[in-house]
């Protein structure tokens, strides 16, 4: 019994320290790459710009699967009991969406696209149906990249 409590506490401490470190590292990397890709506009509109340029179009997508750490899952369980904002999952989803968007943008940028149209998000929780907590989510971002024709 006492060993079980020690084990859970150890997992909480390890999850908190490493999880916080990894999350900060991830946010730093997200901010850096967002700055680098800022010049590529991403729009949710379906209509092409009427600028007289002829474009070639291709489907681009980016996906990512991210999990929360043990400590945050513990916090979320508490939130489930008391209600209120589940901040630990908010940051998980925020990270996943921004990361998926960045991967899509970098795929578009590598093909010299000038614009990405009709961007859609698709979210799936992988552990759904297994009876355990949500824990990890997969986010897919996809859209149509417009590449100016070099004629």
């Amino acid at each position: 019994m006492i060993y079980q409590i020690i084990w859970v506490l150890a997992l909480l401490v390890v999850g908190y320290i490493i999880g916080t470190y990894l999350e900060r590292k991830h946010y730093r990397s997200i901010l850096k790459r967002e700055e680098a890709l800022r010049s590529l506009p991403v729009v949710a509109s379906k209509y092409l710009p009427e600028d007289g340029v002829s474009y070639q179009q291709t489907l681009v997508m980016g996906n990512v699967t991210i999990s929360v750490d043990y400590f945050k899952r513990f916090l979320a369980t508490l939130h489930n009991f008391f209600g209120g904002r589940v901040t630990s999952y908010e940051s998980l989803l925020d990270r996943a969406r921004r990361e998926a968007m960045l991967r899509m943008k970098s795929q578009a940028a590598s093909q010299q696209a000038s614009l990405v149209l009709n961007v859609k998000y698709e979210t799936a929780s992988i552990y759904k149906g297994s009876g355990s907590n949500i824990g990890s989510v997969e986010v897919l971002a996809y859209g149509t990249a417009l590449i100016p024709k070099s004629t």
């Binding site: 390890v14 999880g19 999350e23 999990s67 992988i126």
Partner: peptide
């Protein structure tokens, strides 16, 4: 990774 958090590269 479920304990430590972070990206599940295998699933991606």
């Amino acid at each position: 990774k479920n304990i430590l958090g972070g990206e599940l590269v295998g699933y991606t």
